[in-house]
Design a protein around this nucleic acid. Sequence first.
DNA 1: AGTCTCCCCGTTTTT
DNA 2: CGGGGAGACT
Length: 772
Amino acid sequence: MQNLLQNLNPEQLAAVTLPPQSALILAGAGSGKTRVLTTRIAWLIQTGQVSPAGIMAVTFTNKAAKEMLTRLSAMLPVNTRGMWIGTFHGLCNRLLRTHYKDAALPQAFQILDSQDQLSMIKRLLKANNVDDEKYPAKDLMYFINNAKDQGLRAHQVEAYEPITRKFVELYELYDQQCQKEGVVDFAELLLRAYELLSRNAPLRQHYQMRFRHILVDEFQDTNDLQYNLLKLLAGQGEQGGGAIFAVGDDDQSIYAFRGANVGNMMKFEQDFRVQNLIKLEQNYRSHGHILDSANYLIANNSQRLGKNLRTDAGQGEQVRVYEASKDLEEAQWIIEETKSLMADGVPRSEIAVLYRSNAQSRVIEHALFAAGMPYTVYGGLRYFQRAEVKHAIAYLQLMDNPHNDSAFLRVVNFPTRGIGVRSIEQLQMAADAYGISLYAAVPYMTGKAGTSLGAFVKLIEGMRMETQQLALPELVRVVLERSTLLAHYQTEKEGADRIENLEQMVNAATQFVQEEGFGQNAPAHLGPQAQAQAGQPVVSGDGLEIIDADAALATVMSPLAAFLAHASLEAGDAQAQAGQDALQLMTVHSAKGLEFDAVFITGLEEGLFPHESSSREDNGVDEERRLMYVAITRARRRLYMSFTQQRMLHGQTRFNMKSRFFNELPEESLKWLSPRVQQGNWFSNRKATTAWDDADFRSGGTDNQIARQITQKSGGGSGWRIGESVAHAKFGEGVIVNIEGGAGAARAQINFGAAGMKVLDLSVAKLERVAR
DNA sequence: AGTCTCCCCGTTTTT
DNA sequence: CGGGGAGACT
């Protein structure tokens, strides 16, 4: 045990060894959060305070759950299977599979991903003749998910306007349709689990007694439903509840837009009468100037729990700030700096380029490609989201639950088998008339449509029969062949990658069967009862039939059903990382939780970062500031920040002011690489020794063309140029966006940021040039 | 049935 | 500017 606690700092040690009561750990960036979390679990078990089965640890991503599991098994010689470690959705899935009857779900219920959900909603709108101009499918989806995230069913949503009332009505219809098809969306997994536990007292008490310790990662990201679910599980307000060990950082709350409620941290403190609040402020990642910048910036937010990061690593280098003339030049500068970093021995993969929105990557990618610099863009299509993989999955879904209409529609005519839109329309009508699924409605079809649809049903039935005794990987193989998906892509010219992805699915199935503890040769269709008889332990507790969670999935689900759930809940990796030694490009959001030796934060301009739409939301800029805080704290040794005078966005050139965040950073920690451009004619100063002037000059042709355009547009002798920073007595600092009219009568359109866009007469307005 | 074209849209993302 | 989706055309 000494080993376990060795090398923990005093705060970490205190957190790990807290008494068995609910506690809030305020874990700063790079403060060893995961270490505390896993060591806490190991310590609890090793000191005999709890058995592995008494542990529940919840995360938001599969990656985090996996990480925890890996670290834990390195620490403890205990079988981690007994513990409930996973994502909110994964654990709810497990709960609902075990108690599907009590949750009023079919045993083979399937999980809709966002894509499926949207297409289902579109179908619903069409079926009910709803004007999708007035009630866009996306808005309805947002409405439904939002309501569910707050724990509200359709009848519980307050609706005062006609639009909302219609949404509520459609929400109800949507839920009915899901129930009919035997499918649940992501939010439904949580809501069902919540409702199951809140209605079923014996079951609730069983789990309350079982889970003595519930550990929650990234607590600041919980939404209301997740919070209430935790509260229920911990038995708050009932006897015998367990303790919640909540770890989070309110300063890194950046997911309000998807329902996360930072307020849950404060609420938790009160609801659970938290005695122990521990702050982990010792940072093991970044040098001093970087941390100073982060601390200084985030101090501009109000309503914080309060925290200041510190380091023993010394001040290190200042943050390097660069002003580019335009977006492409910003990208070129990044390349130059990257080369110099690499010359200093920084591996390329240890350098990250961050941006606020995905659209910004294009210009950077373009420049990187032209320069022959290897790079990887994070995000993009994940494995199980790719069209061909989704098609294969749809066949598998139909074999396990033919009433899944989304799956049915996806592949009923793919590869094409002469089933056109008219046939589908007829089928849909029959299904609606009898209130049954499309699949079930097929026998009611007559004529040509009936024949071709009947053949499709026969195909699915045939595949099911044929694979009855096969293990999952073989079953997948058969389905790929029999569905003619493989043959289809073989005739396609760009089909090679798709075929590879499909072949990959057999491997994925093999790996899945192994990792989930299904027998290597267990028939993929084998039902849970047969599984149980095959020797899986089933224990009962408290007079309830509670299935031992040690083998929960293998006990309650067939390998096929489990694999399908896995495909929905874990979308898999994005495209193969193109070369290990590549520059890392990603949004600030996806950078959360990662760290790099050197980090570029790009596009630090008003309107972009902070993003313009954030000013319209309550506390929107505070959230942007937290996002900036996350970005800064990704860097270990060197941090760059850049902004440009001119940027192309949505086919339009924009002139933005530099981000307000620059005013919120400690001047002594910044090193301005591009000397402030002095007033006067911008182009006559081109030979000045400013970094961007030099770079601009070197890059030749294109720049000169742009320079010419700008000269033409520069208000012909008004003395001002577009893109220039100015100050006005009343409106403050701004940027000239456009100049109209000739000398003497020129008027300038000026973006004053917070004060808005103004058109001023240049002969009247008193403007001053601003050195940036 | 498959291809073409036009129109719309544009912050962030996991499950 | 560029991608995706819906609808029209061949």
